[in-house]
Amino acid sequence: QPDICKDYKETGFCGFGDSCKFLHD
């Protein structure tokens, strides 16, 4: 199970976008 993207979880934004290896839940 992939890890949750910390940036996306906390801020709702991730610089990696769809290529981020972490989950954007």
Rank of each mutant, 00 (worst) to 15 (best):
Q1T: 13
Q1G: 08
Q1P: 09
Q1K: 04
Q1C: 14
Q1F: 13
Q1D: 14
Q1S: 07
Q1Y: 13
P2Q: 15
P2K: 15
P2A: 13
P2R: 15
P2H: 15
P2M: 15
P2G: 15
P2C: 08
P2D: 14
P2F: 14
D3N: 08
D3K: 07
D3Y: 05
D3G: 09
D3A: 04
D3Q: 12
D3I: 04
D3P: 06
D3C: 05
D3H: 05
I4V: 07
I4Q: 00
I4M: 15
I4T: 05
I4L: 11
I4K: 11
C5V: 04
C5G: 02
C5L: 00
C5K: 04
C5F: 01
C5E: 03
C5S: 01
C5Y: 02
C5M: 12
K6S: 09
K6P: 13
K6G: 09
K6R: 12
K6L: 08
K6E: 12
K6T: 07
K6M: 12
K6C: 10
D7A: 13
D7G: 10
D7Q: 14
D7P: 09
D7H: 08
D7N: 01
D7M: 15
D7Y: 01
D7T: 09
Y8H: 09
Y8N: 06
Y8E: 13
Y8G: 10
K9A: 14
K9P: 01
K9L: 03
K9G: 11
K9T: 11
K9V: 13
K9F: 11
K9I: 13
K9N: 08
K9W: 09
K9Y: 08
K9E: 12
K9D: 12
K9H: 12
K9R: 09
E10F: 02
E10K: 06
E10W: 01
E10T: 14
E10S: 07
E10Q: 05
E10I: 06
E10Y: 00
E10P: 10
E10C: 06
E10D: 05
T11N: 12
T11D: 14
T11F: 12
T11V: 10
T11H: 13
T11R: 12
T11S: 11
T11G: 12
T11P: 06
T11L: 09
G12Y: 04
G12K: 07
G12R: 06
G12H: 07
G12E: 13
G12W: 03
G12I: 06
G12C: 02
G12N: 09
G12V: 01
G12P: 03
G12S: 11
F13Y: 11
F13K: 11
F13A: 11
F13H: 12
F13I: 11
F13G: 13
F13N: 13
C14Y: 03
C14N: 04
C14Q: 04
C14F: 05
C14I: 06
C14T: 04
C14G: 03
C14W: 00
C14E: 07
G15Q: 14
G15L: 10
G15A: 09
G15M: 15
G15H: 05
G15P: 09
G15T: 07
G15D: 00
G15F: 10
G15S: 11
F16E: 14
F16C: 04
F16Q: 13
F16I: 00
F16M: 15
F16K: 12
G17Y: 07
G17E: 09
G17R: 06
G17W: 02
G17C: 01
G17N: 06
G17D: 10
G17I: 01
D18Y: 01
D18Q: 03
D18P: 11
D18A: 08
D18H: 00
D18V: 03
D18S: 08
S19K: 06
S19T: 10
S19G: 14
S19A: 13
S19P: 03
S19N: 08
S19L: 00
S19C: 07
S19Q: 11
S19R: 09
S19V: 05
C20K: 00
C20P: 02
C20D: 03
C20N: 00
C20M: 06
C20T: 02
C20H: 01
C20L: 03
C20Q: 03
C20G: 02
C20A: 02
C20E: 05
C20V: 01
C20I: 00
K21D: 02
K21H: 10
K21L: 04
K21S: 04
K21I: 10
K21P: 03
K21F: 01
K21Y: 03
K21Q: 03
K21R: 08
K21A: 08
K21W: 08
K21C: 01
F22C: 05
F22A: 09
F22H: 04
F22G: 08
F22Q: 06
F22I: 00
F22P: 03
F22R: 10
F22W: 11
F22N: 10
F22D: 07
L23R: 12
L23S: 08
L23K: 10
L23D: 09
L23H: 12
L23Q: 11
L23A: 10
H24K: 02
H24G: 02
H24L: 02
H24F: 00
H24E: 03
H24S: 01
H24Y: 04
H24A: 00
H24N: 06
H24V: 00
H24M: 10
H24C: 02
H24T: 01
D25P: 09
D25F: 02
D25E: 09
D25Y: 03
D25N: 00
D25I: 01
D25M: 13
D25S: 03
